[in-house]
């Protein structure tokens, strides 16, 4: 694969990434979950501090409780990766308890090695002050035919470009 082809593949992955909010009950293979977790290890972090910790589960009872306390979790995922912040480690680096930089603001995309049918969705964490999970990555197989008109996600489109004003 040439450099151009690799670049095109990355752009295609970026443009085809989407949040799935309707999933089937089909289980997520352990290998797929491990691929997601392994991909997360490669994600860059500020100062290479790696303050996030990941907890994966496919336990039905845990998933049910997670969903009932996660208002943004519309889907019924077959597995979830809870993304937590290592508070003691963050404190050791000098971050104050309510430092906004510790929060995870995006859901990681599906890694290429993952089954093509396994997609991800995301759900926000509860409180900025708690030590609990900051974000939950929902894993499962997308269910077709979901409605999307006039929705919070809707048809995916890139945000409008903003330009910096040119200096004199």
């Amino acid at each position: 694969m040439t450099a151009d082809e690799r670049g095109a593949a990355v752009l295609a992955a970026i443009r085809s990434r989407r949040v799935v909010r309707a999933m089937t009950a089909e289980p997520v293979a352990r290998a797929d979950l491990e691929a997601v977790l392994d991909a997360a290890r490669w994600a860059p972090t500020a100062g290479n501090r790696h303050l996030q910790r990941f907890v994966a589960t496919d336990d039905p009872a845990t998933l049910r409780v997670l969903r009932m306390v996660s208002p943004g979790m519309v889907q019924r995922p077959a597995a979830v990766v809870a993304i937590c912040t290592d508070r003691p480690r963050a404190a050791a680096y000098g971050f104050p308890p309510d430092a906004p930089g510790l929060h995870v603001d995006v859901a990681p995309p599906r890694p290429p090695s993952c089954s093509p049918r396994t997609r991800s969705g995301s759900a926000p964490g509860r409180s900025r002050r708690s030590a609990g999970p900051r974000w939950r990555l929902c894993c499962g197989c997308p269910r077709g035919g979901c409605r999307s008109w006039s929705s919070a996600s809707g048809t995916r489109r890139p945000p409008a470009r903003r330009r910096w004003p040119r200096g004199g």
Binding site: M68, P71, R126, A152
Partner: peptide
Amino acid sequence: LELLAYLVTAARTQVDEAAEYGPLRLLT
């Protein structure tokens, strides 16, 4: 209990969420 938990935690997240999510959470 599931619905109760949803409503209580939705009240908490709504404090930090965009106001437009209010009716969405209630309708959910």
